[in-house]
Design a protein around this nucleic acid. Structure first.
Lengths: 224, 224
DNA sequence: AAAAAGAGAACGAACGTTCGCTCTTTTTAT
DNA sequence: ATAAAAAGAGCGAACGTTCGTTCTCTTTTT
């Protein structure tokens, strides 16, 4: 008879350097635990396919306990989508540190591709994109955060355009959605999983980006 | 009391030019009717979200009747995926009629994008891509048909390469998955729905394709 | 002692599927 | 040609299961 769950508070690993976690701290930990469990289930079975009982089991928690933290399945999905998109947005925040647009975009995108692939995040990404097409609530959250990324992109590209560094094939209003779409295709498809190496992906992505932005001069002769 | 369904055979619209449809013909019609209904439901709610009762209602058919044609929901999904992918494959069959690789690819892709958008097919496309990441049966069907498209692509591009018409940035083993991924991103994202006109999409897609394939000479001065 | 956290049985609804039945069409026997 | 039999098509109630969620009760923390 192994590991039968007893009532009462679940025992979390003890952090020796600090005292017992406060009420609020513990709450945050539990919320995170639920979100991690839910994410794992959603990756395995999708938003609709994963059941609350499965999420409870994965989190090592009873339904009664879980429902003290989230009022519904929808709320969990919303939280996951929001967290995931926020994380994406942060990934692209460092972009405009790079003085060369093409490099800035390529480096950030490659970081994102690497991260997504190594963490098995592609299914969640795909799930959000698909669910956005039919669930308005999800679409709103997704779009809100996606717009954030697109705005960062836009400002960054617009600045380069103002500086005369690039001569894009079309106006930015058409160009940015195109680049987002390409990025989405790459994220979902998981090229690294199909045996395409990162430096091949980078090479192609750089060529693609350059073709769309058409840089008018080299930024840094040291780079390629 | 309107239109209450009576037992027995459902009345289909009569084709005046011919006699009553044979047993087999009628069966095919009913199967098609179910597939159409299922597709509509799947677009609305996804594979997992759509219920058999909904599909029955959409098809104007009772569960008992429907189950004479398909043994399970999975079987319907399989049939839909197969039909959709087959249709995609056919769309790209005309590609190699075009002597200029870039034109051939761009034209076919644009036809496909137009078709997908105008028929509201993007959600099904996205659903298949997402479901492929976790459902092995779906993945097998999807990959099988996707490989067909990729093979057509590969032969077409390889021929151009042999003729010395292009000088791709990377080997075809890396290039083709990249192009498929880009295509998938475009199909799912539905750029036309975001206000990007077809000729802007074509311009960008042409630039992208050219950047990856790097044609060594113009095919036809009349075009471009 | 009060409040918060958790367990786990239980709820009604909805799921995919099956069943028994009626009606229609086709095949077979006369 | 006609009647009987068989097979096919369809309906809709009902099946057992699982779903998301709630409820009651116990244990732990404040």
């Amino acid at each position: 008879m192994e590991d039968l769950a007893l009532p009462g508070q679940f025992e979390l690993p003890v952090d020796n350097d600090s005292q017992a976690p406060s009420r609020a701290e513990r709450r945050d930990q539990q919320i995170q635990r639920i979100l991690d469990a839910a994410k794992a289930c959603f990756i395995r079975s999708g938003f609709q396919g994963a059941s609350m009982h499965q999420i409870c089991a994965e989190a090592g928690m009873s339904p009664g306990a879980l429902y003290r933290y989230f009022p519904s399945k929808e709320a969990i999905i919303r939280a996951i989508v929001e967290a995931d998109r926020k994380q994406d947005a942060e990934k692209f925040a460092a972009m405009d540190k790079n003085p060369c647009v093409v490099d800035g975009i390529v480096n950030c995108a490659m970081d994102h591709i690497r991260y997504t692939h190594e963490n098995g995040n592609a299914p969640i990404f795909a799930e959000i994109a698909t669910e956005s097409l039919r669930n308005e609530t999800i679409r709103e959250i997704g779009d809100y955060c996606m717009d954030e990324v697109q705005h960062q992109f836009r400002n960054y590209v617009q600045a380069a355009l103002d500086r005369g560094e690039i001569d894009p094939v079309v106006e930015l209003d058409a160009l940015l959605p195109m680049m987002m779409a390409i990025g989405q295709g790459l994220a979902i498809n998981g090229l690294p999983g199909k045996g395409v190496s990162y430096d091949r992906i980078e090479k192609m992505f750089r060529a693609t980006t350059a073709a769309l932005l058409r840089p008018t001069r080299k930024c840094d002769p040291a780079k390629n």
